[in-house]
Nucleic acid binder design. Structure first.
Length: 493
RNA sequence: GGCAUUGUGGCCGAGUGGCUAGGCAGAGCUCUGCAAAAGCUUGUACAGCGGUUCGAAUCCGCUCGAUGCCUCCA
């Protein structure tokens, strides 16, 4: 019944720097935590790629039969500007600039985040907790860490004592850094820093009087450090040790390194069995940055409203484009790449739509069973979606060959082929079928069939002026007719 | 400067120590009333320079380039 028993999965563990056989801590169950967005502006397309990678991973784990608890947080406090005036909270800053309440900022961009993800056909996580909803838990962890001697309070703020922690633990094991190197590479700053060591990081920050996002604590009014929320929420919902922790490559250090330190200091055990990091998205070969203008919002792709694009692209085409690269590779977005993906996606959907009409035989000239296993092998190899897609196009070729009666397939193989394609394309990759007509135009197939019939009659009478008129005018409406061995089909673009 | 990831044919992108990735674009053929679609055929790719090896794009070293990070603090 459970596929995971027959389909051994390997994942690349950033902590070890190699692929490992995936064995969940509790058989049949997977706990997965992914660092969610800081909701102070519209969700970045690069962020979407990270979350989409983990959406696909979530989907495949579920497909394998695991019961997955997927926790993805919303950071609505504590994430400070690192290059701004005074280390202001990103959300508080936005609120100040727009003269609205911080929670209005949070609400606006949380809604934006959910809207975009829905367009991309994301599955909702099992739990989507917020940092502000877990202040009490965070304070408890800080108390615990202080008690164990790995943190100190000074002037109403609490800092994690990294050198102390490093004496008995390994700070830097995830990012491959050594504390000594970090110390020698740190610029000497003017010594007004209240931290004992530049490597120390804040668990709790004292709120200055003008700081509006503040909570009471044993150390006075303040707010939690950014790294702490993830430790608090992952521990609360997934336990002291859980299976998978994911996030963007950019969070590896310091964020994830600090999470490990906090959890080990507090619980005495390493929090995560498999660390997984998704790689970055670039555009036209360069990093995406608002400052250089080399940046694009998801909505601008859906509308085509951006200078680098020649047209609009649907969310599912963008999703297909992203799935064509491995999640650990840098992916480069460009108009040409999206155009190529759009055509490939179309071809895939046309094949899906053509399966039902295929005639079956007593024997198969296609080995569907081993093809299916190749699809699983690809996904089992650290979620290799691009290789999976290569295999899906093999199936496309098979389907088209069958359509031309140049191959044969049995009824059961045909059903297996169809079920496998549906499972991987829609359940695992999360693509949506554009050929499935919506309620608004569900009469379209009948109408087009009528026109196809009229065109056939015209062609039979050698009235090519009429037949071409039907074909060309439908094409102008975005409906393409395709003449095949068994008559004419159509697709809508 | 340090750490990490990375550099594949016109474009996007997999992969392995010796055996086809795949998609898009291009070329030829088949089919077709003509197209389109589809099928078949077609590409002296693996940043550069050394090394290991019978053999490396795949392992090692160096060089060059790309991407991320270098800590809540000016």
């Amino acid at each position: 019944m459970h596929l995971y028993k027959s389909q051994p999965l390997k994942v690349y563990n950033s902590l070890k720097g190699k692929k490992e056989i995936f064995e969940s801590i509790s058989e049949g169950y997977v706990g997965m935590y992914v660092c969610g967005p800081t909701v102070y502006s519209n969700v970045h397309l690069g962020n979407c790629r990270t979350f989409m990678s983990f959406d696909m991973i979530f989907r495949y784990l579920k497909h394998l039969g695991y019961k997955v608890r997927y926790v993805r947080n919303i950071t609505d406090a504590g994430h400070l500007e690192n290059d701004a005036d005074e280390g202001e909270d990103k959300i508080a800053k936005k609120a100040r600039l727009e003269r609205i309440e911080p929670m209005e900022v949070v609400q606006r961009y949380t809604v934006d985040f959910h809207t975009i993800l829905q367009k991309f056909n994301f599955l909702p996580p099992s739990i989507e907790p917020t940092a502000t909803g877990h202040i009490i838990e965070q304070i408890e962890i800080i108390k615990d860490i202080i008690e164990k001697g790995f943190a100190y309070e000074i002037n109403g703020s609490v800092y994690f004592d990294v050198p102390k922690f490093n004496e008995s633990h390994n700070y830097g094991k995830l990012s491959g850094r050594k504390l000594e190197d970090m110390i020698s590479n740190t610029r000497e700053l003017a010594s007004q820093d209240e931290k004992k060591s530049p490597q120390d990081f804040a668990l709790w920050k004292k709120a200055e009087t003008q700081h509006i996002m503040r909570w009471p604590s044993p150390w006075g009014d303040g707010f939690p450090g950014w790294h702490l929320e993830c430790t608090a929420m992952s521990t609360k919902y997934l336990g002291e040790t859980f299976d998978i922790h994911g996030g963007g490559m950019d969070l590896k250090f310091p964020h994830h390194e600090c999470e490990i330190a906090q959890a080990e200091a507090s619980n005495g055990v390493s929090p995560v069995k498999y660390w997984m990091h998704a790689n970055m998205l670039t555009m036209n070969g360069k990093k995406m940055a608002k400052s250089t203008g080399n940046n694009i919002l998801p909505e601008e792709i859906f509308t085509g409203n951006n200078d680098i694009l020649s047209k609009a692209f649907t969310p599912t085409v963008v999703r297909f484009f992203m799935m064509q690269a491995h999640y650990t590779s840098i992916l480069d977005l460009s108009n040409d790449a999206l155009l190529a993906s759009e055509k490939g996606y179309s071809k895939l959907m046309d094949a899906i739509g053509a399966i039902d009409a295929i005639n079956t035989s007593d024997s198969s000239s296609i080995d569907v069973v081993s093809w299916r296993q190749k699809c699983y092998d690809a996904m089992n190899d650290d979620f290799n979606s691009p290789t999976l897609i290569a295999h899906l196009f093999e199936a496309v070729k098979h389907i088209n060959t069958l359509k031309e009666h140049k191959a044969t397939i049995t009824e059961s193989d045909k059903n297996l082929l169809k079920a496998t394609l549906n499972a991987f394309i829609f359940d695992v990759l999360g693509l949506e079928n554009k050929n499935v007509s919506s309620a608004d135009n569900d009469k379209l197939p009948d109408v087009v069939s009528l026109l196809i019939q009229l065109r056939k009659e015209a062609r039979d009478n050698k009235d090519f002026a009429t037949s071409d008129k039907i074909r060309d005018q439908l094409a102008a409406l975005g409906i393409q007719l395709k003449d095949g061995k068994d008559g004419t089909t159509f697709s809508v673009s």
